[in-house]
């Protein structure tokens, strides 16, 4: 597992059915681009999060392909439909095969 990776998500606790809710996500990750060199002039190998998805009760909200040009600590903000009470599931896929997950329940209210 890459060092110091911690996903964080900002989602309202409650929403009205039919609302569009704003979701913000941030995951601490170096996003080593594969373009940089170390002190000895050797290329530091690429190590990034290459995909991020958000699903709600099994249906997709957004599916993002990330390239090395995404900044350190990838940040996304987007809007999701809220059709019923349920769980938004967030998944980040690391180049090294690791998968980081986070989930947030949103109630009707």
């Amino acid at each position: 597992m890459a060092k110091g990776v911690k996903p964080r998500v900002k989602v309202p606790k409650k929403a009205a059915v039919g609302d569009a809710i704003t979701i913000k996500t941030l995951i601490s990750h170096k996003m080593e681009s594969g373009q940089r060199k170390d002190g000895d002039g050797n290329v530091i190998p690429r190590s990034i999060i290459n995909r991020f998805t958000c699903d709600f009760n099994g249906q997709n909200v957004i599916d993002v392909t990330l390239e090395p040009a995404i900044s350190t600590n990838p940040y996304f903000e987007f809007e999701a439909q809220f059709p019923e009470a349920g769980e938004y599931k967030f998944t980040w896929y690391d180049d090294d095969g690791d998968v980081y997950e986070e989930a947030k329940q949103v109630a009707v209210g």
Binding site: D55, I62, P74, Q81
Partner: peptide, 19 residues
Amino acid sequence: ATFNFGPLAASQAASTRIR
């Protein structure tokens, strides 16, 4: 990046930070 919007996207819009 490529943003693919699913059936539950409330808008086809997104924000991020790039290099």
